[in-house]
Simulated assay, not measured.
Amino acid sequence: MSASTPGQDQGRDKSADRRAQEAAAWVEDMLLIRDHKDREAFARLFAHFAPRVKGFLMKSGTEGQLAEDCAQDVMVTVWRKAHLYDPARATVATWVFTIARNRRIDVARRDRRPEPEDLGWGPEPDATQEDSVALQQETEQLGAALKALPAKQRDLIERAYFGDLSHKEIAEATGLPLGTIKSRIRLALDKLRHAMG
């Protein structure tokens, strides 16, 4: 394994600073949405997260148009359930991707192709207390599972899923061999799946 050069370390530091600033901006936007139903803040979050959620869903095997529709649903849920967001419990990215994961599970269950009359039409009912608690618990569980990962694996998962970088782009940013990146991400995903049950 090659030692990192000062230039690589400085690049990593700048990248970590940029990610921390982005995360802080997302929290600020999320609180504006939660507390003031701020449409501009929502537009910023939508522009950032909708394509990443779509990519996450497609990587999970969801077909393109369905992934697009689900991503839109996820972002509508972010708007409607913003009052449930607590920055002390999860990052915005963890919260959004928990909603996306639940949406993917719902779609997989629904894929038994119900008849049109079985589909829900009109506005979605407000979340029950039970649903709200379950979402909060899953968000906390995913956040804890991410924190429990070794730092090297967690960094790559965050870059791949929350930063929407390809394995090749991660290799260029970190200087790590492509095989190492793929192996660490595979190990991290296995640990997350195990932790999430």
Results as ranks from 00 to 15, higher is better:
Q8V: 04
Q8R: 13
D9F: 14
Q10S: 11
G11N: 14
R12H: 14
D13P: 00
D13V: 10
K14G: 07
S15T: 13
A16N: 01
A16E: 08
D17P: 00
D17N: 09
D17L: 12
R18F: 07
R18W: 06
R18K: 09
A20K: 10
Q21V: 03
Q21P: 00
Q21W: 05
E22T: 00
A25M: 10
A25P: 00
W26C: 03
V27Q: 08
M30F: 06
M30Y: 00
M30A: 08
L31Y: 06
L32I: 11
L32D: 12
L32F: 05
I33C: 11
R34Q: 07
R34G: 05
R34V: 03
D35H: 09
D35I: 14
D35E: 15
H36N: 13
H36P: 00
K37S: 15
K37C: 10
K37D: 14
D38L: 04
R39K: 13
E40N: 13
A41Q: 06
A41M: 07
A41N: 08
R44P: 03
R44H: 14
L45S: 06
F46G: 01
A47G: 10
H48K: 10
F49M: 09
P51Q: 12
P51A: 13
P51C: 13
P51L: 15
V53Y: 02
K54S: 07
G55C: 04
G55A: 10
G55I: 04
F56M: 10
L57G: 02
L57T: 06
M58T: 04
G61E: 07
T62V: 15
T62Y: 12
G64I: 12
Q65H: 13
Q65N: 12
A67E: 04
A67P: 01
E68A: 13
D69L: 13
C70D: 11
Q72R: 06
D73G: 11
M75V: 04
M75T: 05
T77S: 15
V78I: 09
V78N: 05
V78A: 10
R80T: 12
K81I: 04
K81F: 08
K81T: 09
H83V: 06
L84P: 00
P87K: 06
P87I: 04
P87L: 04
A88S: 08
R89A: 06
A90H: 03
A90K: 01
A90M: 05
T91W: 01
V92C: 02
V92F: 05
T94Y: 02
